[in-house]
Design a protein around this nucleic acid. Sequence first.
DNA 1: CCAGAACGATTACAACTCTGAACGATTATC
DNA 2: GATAATCGTTCAGAGTTGTAATCGTTCTGG
Lengths: 158, 158
Amino acid sequence: MYGLPVPLENPPGSAFLLAAVGAHAAARFAERVAALDLTPPQVGLLGLIAASPGQSQQQVAQVLGMPPSRLVGLVDALADRGLVERRRNPDDRRLHALHITEAGRAVLDEIGAVGRAHDDALCRSLDADERETLRALLSRIAADQGLRPGVHPGYRSV
Amino acid sequence: MYGLPVPLENPPGSAFLLAAVGAHAAARFAERVAALDLTPPQVGLLGLIAASPGQSQQQVAQVLGMPPSRLVGLVDALADRGLVERRRNPDDRRLHALHITEAGRAVLDEIGAVGRAHDDALCRSLDADERETLRALLSRIAADQGLRPGVHPGYRSV
DNA sequence: CCAGAACGATTACAACTCTGAACGATTATC
DNA sequence: GATAATCGTTCAGAGTTGTAATCGTTCTGG
């Protein structure tokens, strides 16, 4: 989706600050995972498959809020690199159950380190208490706004 | 840029929460301004022209961090609706100085109301003190991360 | 048991946006 | 006065995303 270049007022409201800092955080994270030859959607998909393995692509697509046709390319990229595998469900051979591989789990560990470094770099101007305060406030907003915990709303539709 | 669908860990770090809530805020704001037949980039451009009129398109493009060729279409859309006008600089007739019109200022007022409503809706679960705390923390991060105050980093390049 | 509808995954196609180079017009430099 | 540089614009190419058609599989009703 689009970004908002400039604020409407001075000082900028919380919503504008949130969008700006959030976009910055996303961009920096994208830079970091690019060093692992991954895009943020691939990272998110890998994490979701690891968190709840065996789901069908349609289920995953609905959770992420993206059209199933788009998931195909993402899964292809991860499967070609051996990080994920599609297993046909013997009971219903239409479904492709998604599972993470050992290599995928190893990459996920690297991603975890990258994520922690990213988090530290972003919040380096805040002390531990302030970080916790920020997390609490953001979590409250997320819950109030109906964001499913842990799912990034960067994919519209649904 | 991309969004990150799912977090790497539980509980999600501040960076992930920021990206998620920020994307949500941007998406909701886009919905609101769509009712005015505007896109967020158009809104940002209109606000910037109002805040510092008379600038050339190249200057504006550099401030927003987007290629000048992209600005053309944005300015066209606003100029076609009479919200903005290009004035040739008599001293240097290569430059198109951008100015906001009366109609543009009226639309900007509507945008301001939309923005305040958006802000209130987003932060409705926070009281006044908490909103101020959130704004202070986000401002600190933005300053530390080198975000020019008031400019949304949603346009890479530069 | 069989024909047709329903469903999951994939592919194909079209619409859209963005980027980068090329182009006329104008101005600065030597 | 000729050449280079600048500004705005245009154009073509690449990349991305959503919709619709396709293929194999499974469910449903007679």
